[in-house]
């Protein structure tokens, strides 16, 4: 099992040398709204309508 992993790692390393991997895509997100948070560590307000 260990040997298989080593073999795969070596094969991957060789592939990396031959063909550089593409960079992982950059991730950057920012959303915005009117702030209305009033919760604190002792309480979180759940606004969801009662189900019963």
């Amino acid at each position: 099992m260990t040997r298989t992993v080593q073999t795969q790692t070596q094969t991957q390393a060789q592939a990396n040398i031959q063909q550089p991997q593409a960079a992982a895509p950059t991730i950057a997100v920012r959303k915005s709204c009117n702030p209305d948070g009033i919760g604190l560590s002792h309480y979180v307000l759940m606004d969801k309508k009662a189900a019963k």
């Binding site: 920012r30 959303k31 915005s32 009117n34 702030p35 948070g37 919760g39 604190l40 560590s41 979180v44």
Partner: peptide, 11 residues
Amino acid sequence: ILAPTARRLMC
């Protein structure tokens, strides 16, 4: 992190 103004808790 995703939406600073959408926080529910203000600690």
